[in-house]
Write a protein that binds this DNA or RNA. Structure first.
Lengths: 353, 353
DNA sequence: GCATAGCTGTAAAACGTTTTTCAGTCAATT
DNA sequence: AATTGACTGAAAAACGTTTTACAGCTATGC
């Protein structure tokens, strides 16, 4: 396997010149540059990443820290990240915290030490103390700053670039849609309420109801943990407190819980969307595989991955300068399917995998 | 951030000694070793991975090459891989081929060049020429061999360590189960038949039917591409050729296609499991989220990830010696749910996420 | 008691780049 | 014609480790 000095020898130049044409570090005259390029091609030379990383003090790698890799949410995000990384020649390294705050710290430390160019962090713990996030924003290693972008949560107030979908808007859309379909007796199955992911969705839902002159008492809100089983249980609780005829619409904070709720409703003999209409969140493929197919709020997952990755790379390559934290708020979008509209198409074209 | 020479200075030894106690490269006397360890702790020193990688010519990293990251299959596998990697201090870098043979080559080359310690490869293309796989088995970079383990496909015949679930056994189990439940008019929705993944499942299915004195004519086999939509279409074709009363059991080569088939059957007004029983494959969470919940063949996905990772690490660290390729065949297992047994529990306890 | 072998420690070379520093050439300005 | 400056090239230092080669010391065997 040829090294840079082989190239230099073949092109009859110094290794510094070779390096300069590869990295455009300094201008090199046209004829020399051509000789070098030819030599590189002929030898099939490619620089040893380890050596150049050692010198540059940066790996051409970005880290992704997930809270739970088995969640249906990530594959789309990763897909988006990959699209960007492919072009820019970065590698993606994966770390999973299993929703453990300790592990999160550990993962970040490992990534920092291995000198990735940046970190995409999905933290479910915005209940942490402020100092934690401020540290994150100032993260650096041996004097080199380490860019971090927050995924799903808006942490710009702590100085972190953030890409997130507008949960308030999403909750609002869900409420509007249910109201338009004539629902009046609404309830919400929330995610873990210590996180703003879940809170925003609830907030938006409440907001739209208020606009319509309705209120959502706490007894009509049951919190789950984003799992299917918790959605089932939450739905059972809601039905119980509301009485048999007390509900005609439920908004769940993600598709999994909506699917669980769906099962609970069917067990009680309630028709969907006949007796109760149901709206989920995230527009994962669950929404299309379940019957009746699930009306849901779409979150542009792939786009989020793309944005996070390209933002990170810009920071890493210093192209952003010292600009303040960027808030990349993406719009939520309603996708109507059978749980609110009996005539809807099952539409699995969207999910042809 | 302290370097190795800071440690050396503080412990009053040479940097070589520090390196030796860290890597157990050579014996170091007890008192010295203790001094060094103390110094390391006090300074919080951790070796720069880039420098040591450059010297050792190996990154503490393994690569995973997937065919389509959005598939529900991978998250479990990644989870298993992570469990092993966490302990051994390796990092996981992800590459996706999008089912493109060209990209697969590209990904492998990139991983090789970045000197990962090994590669876990899921290739859907065992239709490739023999030479390709033989090359893979002999993969090396600058004279250092690069271990590769094949995921899902048994490629031991080409000299590759392989971890895979026994598809033939799985198909066999599916057939047995359907027969036991009294089905006689069976059909199969296959995956892409150019790959042995799909073929093995079909083979096992046929084998069990033959044992029972039944045959499976080609007209009762419809091939899909593992997507939900293709399962739907395949089921439609089968129902058409078989006539309205011609089928009482379908085995699909994965859960997604089974879900698609399920929708087709319901559209034709057929009851599951009343009129037709249905068996899927993989035991992904789809099987538990769909209603009726799906009887399916379980593949130990997490275990596969664990095995692949630990096998790879053993090879990478040379602990395996020059032993021949290891075939890690994992058992398939039947999981009975509502599509074949009306009294089955929905059992989402298994999938509490 | 002297050569030999085995330990244990250090200085220095090596890994393959990038980056800094210096030197030489040529054209433009004084 | 001499001075400056811009441009282009190469030699050498640097990155932070690991590894090699060597040196000193102690114990062993003849």
């Amino acid at each position: 396997m040829p090294g840079i000095k082989d190239v230099a020898q073949r092109a009859q130049v110094s290794i510094a010149t070779v390096s300069n044409v590869i990295n455009n570090t300094r201008p090199v005259s046209a004829p020399l540059r051509q000789r070098v390029k030819d030599a590189i091609d002929e030898l099939g030379y490619v620089a040893d990443p380890m050596a150049s990383q050692l010198k540059k003090r940066r790996a051409r790698t970005i880290g992704l820290v997930t809270t739970r890799i088995t969640s249906v949410f990530y594959p789309y995000v990763i897909d988006g990240i990959n699209q960007v990384l492919d072009q820019s020649g970065y590698d993606l390294v994966l770390h999973d915290t299993r929703d453990d705050a300790e592990r999160e710290i550990h993962c970040i430390r490992r990534l920092t030490q291995s000198r990735v160019s940046g970190i995409i962090l999905d933290t479910s713990h915005d209940k942490r103390d402020e100092g934690y996030f401020l540290n994150l924003a100032a993260l650096s290693h041996r004097g080199y700053p380490m860019p971090v972008v927050s995924l799903e949560l808006d942490l710009t107030r702590y100085g972190l670039d953030s890409v997130f979908a507008d949960g308030t808007e999403g909750g609002d859309l869900a409420a509007q849609h249910l109201l338009e379909r004539g629902c009046q007796k609404l309830a919400h199955i929330a995610g873990p309420l210590h996180g703003s992911l879940a809170q925003d969705r609830l907030l938006g839902f409440r907001r739209a109801l208020l606009r319509a002159g309705l209120t959502l008492p706490d007894s009509r809100v049951a919190a789950g943990d984003f799992s299917q089983a918790s959605g089932y249980r939450a739905a059972c609780r809601l039905l119980e407190t509301a009485g048999s005829d007390g509900l005609d619409g439920i908004f769940a904070a993600n598709d999994q819980m909506a699917a669980g709720a769906c099962h609970a409703l069917r067990e009680k003999g309630l028709a969907i969307p006949g007796d109760i209409r149901l709206v989920g969140y995230d527009n994962t493929f669950i929404a299309s595989i379940v019957r009746p197919s699930l009306t849901t709020i779409d979150v542009p997952k792939t786009e989020m991955g793309r944005l996070a990755a390209s933002c990170l790379i810009e920071r890493a390559e210093g192209r952003t300068g010292l600009a303040g934290p960027r808030a990349m708020r993406l719009p939520a979008k309603l996708v109507v399917r059978e749980t609110t509209d009996p005539d809807a198409e099952p539409d699995w074209a969207l999910f042809d995998w």
